[in-house]
Amino acid sequence: MEAAIDRIMQTYDLLMNRTAAASAEARAKVTSYVTTLFEAGERDPHRLTVCGLTYLRELDGSSDPVKAGYTGL
């Protein structure tokens, strides 16, 4: 689980330009989220990594389909 969290943060830090405080806050949130997934039975580190990155991108709004131009038409 720790390896997945480290990988999530390394990748996310490459995508986003944030302060150390924002990075620490993101790490705390994703750790809680990944822990929940792990306790629910997810053990694949690659899947945990993808889920964690998706979670962080949803939190910061960078995966908003409307902002990306998808109108549903």
Rank of each mutant, 00 (worst) to 15 (best):
P45M: 05
I5K: 14
G61Y: 14
P65F: 03
L15A: 15
I5M: 05
S23L: 15
R47T: 11
T11K: 10
M1D: 09
T19V: 02
S32V: 07
D6E: 14
L56G: 03
R7Q: 12
V66Q: 13
Y33F: 15
R7A: 12
Y33D: 06
E25A: 09
I8P: 01
S63H: 00
R47W: 03
A20C: 05
R43H: 08
L53N: 09
T54V: 07
M1K: 08
T35R: 14
V30Y: 05
D13M: 09
E39R: 15
A28D: 10
A68C: 00
M16H: 12
P65E: 08
L48P: 01
N17D: 14
P45H: 11
M16P: 00
E58Q: 14
R18E: 13
D44R: 11
A24T: 13
S32L: 07
L48V: 06
A40E: 15
A21E: 13
G41L: 06
T31P: 01
L53E: 08
A24D: 01
Y12L: 10
Y55Q: 07
L15R: 12
A24S: 03
I5C: 04
S62H: 12
A21S: 06
D44K: 08
G61W: 14
R47N: 09
S62C: 03
R43P: 04
A24E: 11
D60F: 02
A28W: 00
E25R: 08
Y70A: 06
K67D: 07
T71C: 00
D64N: 15
P65Y: 02
A68E: 12
T71M: 00
T49V: 04
L73Y: 03
Y55E: 02
I5P: 08
L59D: 11
V50Q: 02
F38V: 07
L15E: 14
A22N: 07
M16Q: 15
L53P: 04
D13K: 14
Y33I: 01
A24I: 08
M9E: 06
S63F: 00
